[in-house]
Simulated scan of single mutants.
Amino acid sequence: MTDIDGYSRPATRRTAARLTPGGRGAVATIRVAEGLGPEERGAEFQGIDPLFEAANGVALSQQPLRKIAFGRWGYSHREDLIVCRISADLLEIHCHGGNSAVERILKDLEEATYQVVDWQTQLTLSDDILQAECQETLSRTTTWRTTQIALEQAGGLLRQAFQELVWTTDEATLLSRLDNLIHWSNFGLHLSNPWNVVLTGRPNVGKSSLINALLGYERAIVFDQPGTTRDVVTGETAFEGWPVVLADTAGIRQDAHALESQGIALAQARLRTADLQIVLLDLSQAPTQDDFELLRQWPEALVVGNKADLSMQWDEALPENVLQVSAKRGQGLAELQSEIVRRLVPEVPPTGTAVPLNPRQVAILQQARSAGEMTARRAVLSKLLHGGRDLV
């Protein structure tokens, strides 16, 4: 069975999933979800009691909650590991990080009638959709800075904010709280999805050299022949702790041939969806009509003048506040990175600020804000904690 969110629903709620990435590692973690019905409560994990011999002599199903227990796992191939019952029906197994150990334990659990699934699928079975969403966001953060903010939300901050929305009876207070959350929507969505920055400019202004300099490695091919870059070349990095995808696009000019024109069309499409456009000029050459057309087409773009180490060939036509850099010599790159961050993240939420994390949450908040009556707003907001996947 496949749910609307794209994950396959297992046939049973009794599941086992590897939480840590595959491959070599010091420690791997497997989460076991019992998923028993009300009539079966009290019998959690009894089916796998024979698999674990605890050093403290207590059966696995009787181990105290939130306490680690050391012991040996398995029948013929004994594996030293620790277990922890993190709730009445959730168990974590921490074993050697090698694939063979993990696969052997999962095989034992499968024989004990637990269905082996991936961790995302296991999360979809949770009755706590908000916690599942927080965990999903955490798994996709790529920097310490974004992870810390996501952890704060997962630690109860976002739940408290959503509960306050649902319980608020004063319309003015409700609208104020809605507006505060919606204000941080774009920021929250980027915690797990990098900001996109696209470089554009006419051929040979140094886009490929600049993106390589910003990334710190050679991602784009540098060549002095116009039309070298025909596809969109991307590289991921982080500026001041914020994840960014930089895109190097085909040089834009009026007299491009057919194949080059296809690359230009791709560049234009990428520019339209970017969080920030950078128009790159070559300061060592006199301006052309292509330069002026790009400046006209992208008036909100960050304008950067490259090759500032060479003789200046622009006159009074040079735009105000242009950032002058030299991709070859590294001149002005720190200032450019700071300006990129200022444009992408003009403000950072103070500690303790609730931030929505995914499109479902944002869609519900926006629908509640546009609802005409208080009763309708509260009905929509109840989906924040109890479902509402139809809004994704």
Rank of each mutant, 00 (worst) to 15 (best):
P38G: 06
E373A: 11
L210A: 14
T375V: 15
D231I: 06
K107L: 06
V279Q: 14
L336G: 11
W144K: 15
R369G: 05
A308K: 13
R342T: 03
A28Q: 03
T234F: 13
A16T: 02
V341M: 09
Q277G: 14
P356I: 00
R104Q: 05
D291I: 00
T273C: 13
N180W: 01
I48V: 09
V348F: 14
K107D: 02
G35P: 06
V322Y: 14
S126F: 02
P349T: 02
I182C: 00
L157G: 09
E339R: 13
V205Y: 03
G35W: 00
T2W: 15
L215W: 03
G263C: 10
R230T: 00
L165Q: 01
L189R: 10
F70A: 12
W73I: 04
N306G: 14
P38N: 08
I211Q: 15
D231M: 12
G387Q: 11
S139W: 03
P359R: 07
E347V: 15
Y75K: 14
L357M: 05
Q153E: 05
A154R: 15
D89C: 14
L157Q: 10
F223W: 10
L165F: 03
G188V: 00
V83I: 04
R31Q: 11
E300K: 14
L157R: 14
P299R: 10
L174F: 05
I182M: 00
W119D: 09
E79N: 05
T12M: 07
Q289M: 10
E373Y: 09
G206R: 13
L283N: 08
G57N: 03
L280T: 09
A379L: 12
F223N: 15
N196F: 01
A69T: 05
E300L: 09
T142Q: 11
V166G: 12
P287Q: 02
Q131R: 14
V117M: 12
E40I: 03
L178C: 03
R145T: 07
T146P: 14
L365M: 10
E347D: 13
R104G: 09
W242F: 07
L246I: 02
D170W: 03
E44F: 04
Y217E: 11
V222I: 04
N212A: 01
D282H: 13
Q122E: 11
I364S: 13
L19F: 00
A33H: 09
W119S: 15
E111W: 01
G216I: 02
A317E: 09
Q367M: 04
D49K: 11
G155V: 05
